[in-house]
Design a protein around this nucleic acid. Structure first.
Ligand code: FES
Ligand code: FES
Lengths: 138, 138
DNA sequence: TATTTCCCTATCGGCTAAGCAGGAATATAC
DNA sequence: GTATATTCCTGCTTAGCCGATAGGGAAATA
């Protein structure tokens, strides 16, 4: 349960890779080789990260991707949301209509609380924490 | 991301149903009707709950399922584990060999910390909390 | 013996994730 | 201005899982 998709894991590894580059531009081919990610698949992931405003992509020779913010200013939550939308244990957390039992459904509060806990954890860990192997949050 | 399977949601609703019955036996048909769960599908879920030692099933006339412990003594974590194995964001949390980058992989600690946070939340909320609409844990 | 219920096994359709392919747009280099 | 490197876009295929169903066997009761 609660498995993280390969797509998301790839994205995080790619971001760590960029964080280590410290502003230097890296091509998808370079990142793919360093992190052992299917190159063509990585392209789509970088697009998602770009659309979320986390990285900037420049085309042509000497093109590539670079971070748009300092790693310390990028909460992990941002990266996850860039790929999978928001962290949401059950769909009815956002749209209660989906539950046939209506507003009186007990588990709902439980899921909302879980979402809050996960969100908080991911907000309190920045990309820099990961890149530096720092496990105690910010 | 982090979507909870219908199977797990069904299981929790069924357990809440049993908690309200306060020891009285309920048949799968009764639970299915009350919680709007496909009856045949629910059978498989109850089997999983039984194998996990959470409920006891008795066959024959006047058979059915009942809780084996008081709702207050059943952490939600137990229910989740009964269905999906353990809460494990990425497979390499348990078996690091799966990561091609080996022990030096940075994100690993991040996932382990996330697992701990989720586990703690689910351990601190009992079935009774859910059944009573109590959202502040034990 | 009949009935009710849990239990076991197998199967199906639909959906999504993972990865691949081909090419169009754009920036540099010579 | 032609060649080259790179991002970008669009669509496709495959494999695997999830939800659900079907049919029947085993046990407990009446
Ligand atoms: S509101 Fe989510 S299961 Fe009822
Ligand atoms: S150990 Fe999990 S991604 Fe490397």
């Amino acid at each position: 349960m609660f498995s993280v998709s390969a797509r998301t894991q790839y994205a995080i590894r790619a971001m760590v890779c960029l964080a280590r580059a410290e502003g230097r531009q890296l091509t998808t081919a370079e990142i793919a080789a360093a992190e052992q990610i299917p190159p063509k698949y990585l392209e789509g992931i970088m697009t998602a990260l770009k659309n979320a405003g986390l990285v900037s992509g420049e085309r042509g020779k000497h093109g590539g991707f670079r971070l748009l913010k300092a790693p310390a200013d990028i909460p992990m939550l941002r990266i996850i949301e860039a790929l999978d939308g928001s962290v949401m244990p059950v769909n009815c957390v956002h749209t209660p209509d989906l539950c046939s039992l209506g507003c009186s459904c007990m588990p709902r509060q439980f899921w909302i609380g879980l979402k809050d806990v996960i969100d908080a954890y991911m907000r309190d860990h920045s990309l820099q924490d990961i890149a530096e192997g720092n496990d105690h949050g910010h």
